[in-house]
Structures are given as C-alpha cells and as structure tokens.
C-alpha cells in the first residue's frame, strides 16, 4: 500500500514537468499592494506581445536583496524609494529608467455595517470622530516599518488626531492584513489605500484624506529596469506602462495616474 502511494506521488510530480523553458519571459518583481493590478496589466500585455510574464511578489526589502544576489527580474515596481536608492548604490538598476507610474491616496475605511460617518472638513470633525470611536480600536500598519503605516502616521498628525488615538491603535503587519482587520470589524475604522478599498467589497470609504489640505507624503509607485551584466531588457514593458492603454487599467484599480 505504502509503495503504491509513493509511486503515485512520483508520477504526480513528474507528470507536470515542462520539458522546455519558455524562450522569452519577462519577470516582474512588484510590491504586494500592486500584485492584482500587475496581474491585470500583464494579461493585457501578454495578449499584445505574446511574451510570457511572471509576477514575483514580496516585501521590497526582500526582493531588493534577492535581486542583489542574482534573482532574475527584468523590472521592479515598488512604493519604497529608499530601497530603490539602495539598489542604485549597488548598480542594480538603470538610473535613467526610474519613473513614477502611479500614485495612491489614503482613506478612512470601515466595515460595511459599522455605520461610521464623518465629515473630514467640518469644524466638529475631531469631536465627532472621538465620539464615534469611543472605546473601539483604530487600525493602521506598523508606523515605522510598513509604508502605509508611515504615511498614515503623517496624515493622522496633519489631522491632529495622532495624540488622541494613543492607546487605541492596532498595528498590523501589512496594508492587506490591515484591510482584513477592518473588513472583519476587529477594528471599527482604519486607514487604507484607496486602491485596496476599491477592490474589496467588504469595506466602505468613510472619507478620503486630501493631501493638499492635510499634508502627507503621497504613496508613489516607482518602476525601474534591472541591470544584469550592465544591460537591461524589459521588452518595452516600462514604456507600455506609461501609455494611455496601461494608465487606463491603473486608473480602474483606484490609483492616480501620472498624466
């Protein structure tokens, strides 16, 4: 019996080995918050060009280190400018190619049945906010290590809420886990990317935080071509990202485009 199961496993594993690798493959390393957008973009691009694409995702810090150690990506898209600079120092990317492909904004979001309502521009905003929050929790990603957390802290300070929220903040590990906290109602309200709330059916945008009134560093996504042996080759993907066709898809996902 055991032998039969083992043989079954062997057959199973090797029934799926592809005999030949694809000759042309574009490898994209993207920040987790861009994964779904990237999938849609590559599907469209594959149709156009017939070049197979593979989307690799993970924390930018890990991806950057892996590229430094020989990971095979052609292009990186990240929200973290510091790590791009780190890669620049090590001549891993083509400096001229660095370009902004999208921006994002922050919103207050809450679960669909929470009934949280605020007007961010009213004079009573702060009182109103504190009343509704009362003893419930407020979710943001960790304000020193996760990009969304860093931006959220800046926004909360501009809104003069940071000190009042002391003791009521839940720090989550990523923008997605933050969103899941809010979706499930573990936290009554929190800060999310606009793009993430648009793709989720379980959260509502309570209020958009306008960075021209309440200044915070606007989440920005940079793309850069990765150099290997001094050369870069992204099969023209970056140029296409800037085209109106690609920018339209980016807009549909709730991002601001650069036009």
């Amino acid at each position: 019996m055991t032998q039969k199961i083992i043989i079954f496993f062997i057959l199973l594993a090797f029934s799926n080995i592809k005999l030949l690798a694809e000759n042309e493959t574009l490898y994209l390393s993207v920040a987790s918050s861009l994964y779904n957008l990237s999938k849609s973009l590559t599907i469209e691009w594959e149709k156009k060009t017939n070049i197979k694409t593979v989307v690799i995702t993970g924390p930018t810090s890990l991806i950057a280190r892996q590229i430094h150690n020989g990971q095979l990506s052609n292009l990186i898209i990240t929200a973290n400018r510091d790590w791009l600079a780190w890669m620049e120092d090590r001549e891993l990317i083509n400096i001229e190619s660095i370009s902004v492909i999208a921006k994002n904004s922050l919103v207050f979001s809450s679960g669909i049945n929470q009934g949280f309502f605020i007007d961010i521009n009213s004079i009573n905003f702060k009182e109103n906010f504190k009343d509704q929050l009362s003893s419930s929790m407020f979710a943001i990603p960790h304000p020193s290590s996760v990009p969304l957390g860093i931006y959220a802290k800046q926004a909360l300070k501009s809104l003069d809420l940071w000190d009042d929220l002391n003791g009521k903040l839940v720090f989550t590990s990523s923008s997605q886990s933050n969103l899941k906290f809010i979706e499930k109602g573990e936290a009554i309200i929190g800060i999310s990317y606009l793009s993430d709330t648009i793709s989720s059916s379980k959260v509502l945008v309570v209020a958009k935080i306008d960075d021209s009134i309440f200044p915070y560093e606007k989440p920005t996504y940079w793309a850069a071509k990765i150099k290997r042996n001094g050369n870069d080759n992204d099969f023209g993907f970056l140029d296409w990202l800037k085209s109106s066709e690609a920018q339209k898809i980016i807009k549909n996902y709730g991002f601001e485009t650069t036009e």
């Binding site: 490898y27 987790s32 918050s33 994964y35 779904n36 593979v54 989307v55 690799i56 995702t57 993970g58 890990l62 991806i63 892996q66 990971q71 990523s174 997605q176 886990s177 969103l179 993430d196 793709s199 989720s200 059916s201 379980k202």
Partner: peptide
C-alpha cells in the same frame, strides 16, 4: 524557501508561498 529562492510562480512558488501571496494580495 522565500528568503533563498524567492516567490517565483512556476519555479519556486510552492503551496505555502502561493497561499501567503494570496493572503497578502487577494480580497
């Protein structure tokens, strides 16, 4: 696995890595 060989679909993305990808990115 994720630290050494990354999260590359079709090459190194095993079930735990795929699951993690979904949890991190999917609604």
């Amino acid at each position: 696995t994720i630290a050494f060989v990354g999260n590359i679909p079709g090459e190194t993305q095993t079930l735990p890595l795929a699951l993690w990808t979904l949890i991190e990115t999917s609604n």
